[in-house]
Computed example of a mutant assay.
Amino acid sequence: MTTSPKAFSKVFPKTAQRGDGAVAIEAVPLRHPGRWVGSAVLAFLVIFLLQGWAANPRMQWDVVGEYLFSPAVLQGLGTTLLLTVLAMAVGIAGGAVLAILRMSSNPLLSGLSGFYIWVFRGTPLLVQLLFWYFLSAVVPKIGLGVPWGPTFFEFDTNQIITQMTAAVLGLGLHEAAYMGEIVRAGITSVDVGQTEAAHALGMTRFQTLRKIVLPQAMRLIIPPTGNQAVSMLKTTSLVFAIAVPELLTSIQGIYSRNFQQVPLLTVACIWYLVATTVLNAGQYYIERRFNR
């Protein structure tokens, strides 16, 4: 059953017949007054809360400005950023190795990778940090030699596993367990036919992984890795338990002397927000590059 343009225009008056005989409908967008009212109420609440927070004299914004660029605060910020970079480097490298081992056809290698991920994801990060910090209580000396044989070199554990080393090991090895699953998910998302085609062309498994699989898997690996980097930046605050002078530890050291807790915690929040904004911007440009 067909309807002529004239009959159609009688039913739908907001129509016009074009020169080619087709009917052009003048579409009227739907009105959503509820959305505008809800948005206005929400905007009012946000402005009201921000104004009350900014105008509150107990926030002591002069103290915030005084300590925002304090040498102790900037030094703690530098330690936080260094910990984030080192821990993520260990985590990404370890995660890639764990993912490859987990996908191995060798049951021993696959089982070892699964056991590592099970242990490090199943125990709290704070416990792992404390374990590495107190490692000398279990292993007082670290030696290099033949197993069950002579030792060629021996070092004091406390000299090797310092506070900073314990923090990097604790954060990085814990992160590797999560990155292993992220990398494995990205690799398995690539169609297996591409791997088979690469092998048919004579490429080795390493060449296939490096030139075919990983470039495509990166589009799925980068977003969760960026989230892990942002999370790591904030997780570094846990190293206060082993007295590493990162940002929050430096802030706590200052307000333990002047008792200005809220202004100094505001300083910490500002720097954490600045750092996470930079990380998010970097993630955006990296994602855009691999999405080409």
Results as ranks from 00 to 15, higher is better:
Gly34Ile: 13
Gln216Ser: 08
Ala43Pro: 07
Leu109Val: 02
Asn291Trp: 01
Glu181Arg: 04
Val23Leu: 00
Gly38Lys: 04
Asp191Phe: 00
Ser250Cys: 06
Val63Arg: 06
Gln51Ser: 01
Ile222Tyr: 07
Met179Gly: 07
Thr249Gln: 14
Val262Trp: 10
Trp118Glu: 01
Ala268Trp: 10
Thr188His: 08
Ala87His: 01
Leu135Asp: 13
Lys6Ile: 07
Val244His: 05
Phe69Ser: 01
Ala176Gln: 10
Arg102Val: 14
Ile187Gly: 15
Gln60Gly: 14
Ser104Pro: 03
Arg219Trp: 15
Leu68Phe: 14
Ala40Pro: 10
Val41Tyr: 12
Ser39Gly: 12
Ile286Ala: 05
Ile251Gly: 06
Val127Met: 07
Ser113Ile: 08
Pro33Val: 15
Ile254Thr: 04
Leu247Glu: 15
Thr195Ile: 02
Leu171Gln: 07
Phe259Gln: 06
Phe134Cys: 03
Ser256Glu: 08
Ile187Trp: 02
Leu265Ile: 08
Phe131Val: 11
Leu201Gly: 12
Leu108Asn: 05
Gln260Lys: 13
Val46Cys: 07
Val190Trp: 03
Glu246Val: 04
Asn158Phe: 09
Leu112Arg: 00
Leu81His: 10
Lys211Ile: 11
Val168Thr: 08
Arg288Val: 04
Leu82Ala: 10
Val73Thr: 05
Val262Ser: 07
Val168Ile: 11
Ile182Gln: 04
Arg288Pro: 06
Val139Trp: 13
Val262Gly: 12
Leu125Cys: 03
Val146Ala: 05
Trp36Gly: 05
Asp62Ser: 02
Ala93His: 01
Asp156Cys: 02
Thr151Met: 12
Ala89Gln: 11
Leu238Glu: 07
Val183Leu: 06
Ser250Glu: 05
Ser110Gly: 03
Ala54Glu: 11
Asn258Trp: 15
Leu169Met: 03
Ala167Tyr: 03
Cys269Leu: 09
Gly170His: 14
Ala16Phe: 02
Thr80Lys: 02
Ser136Asp: 13
Ser105Gln: 15
Gly94Leu: 03
Arg35Gln: 13
Ser39Tyr: 13
Tyr116Arg: 03
Gly111Met: 01
Asn158Arg: 06
Ala200Phe: 05
Gln75Asn: 04
Ala43Cys: 01
Leu173Cys: 11
Leu171Met: 05
Gln207Gly: 09
Arg58Cys: 02
Arg35Pro: 00
Arg18Tyr: 00
Ser9Gly: 02
Ala217Trp: 14
Leu214Cys: 07
Lys14Ala: 05
Asp191Thr: 01
Leu74Thr: 03
Ile142Asn: 00
Val146Ile: 15
Ser237Val: 04
Val230Trp: 13
Tyr272Phe: 06
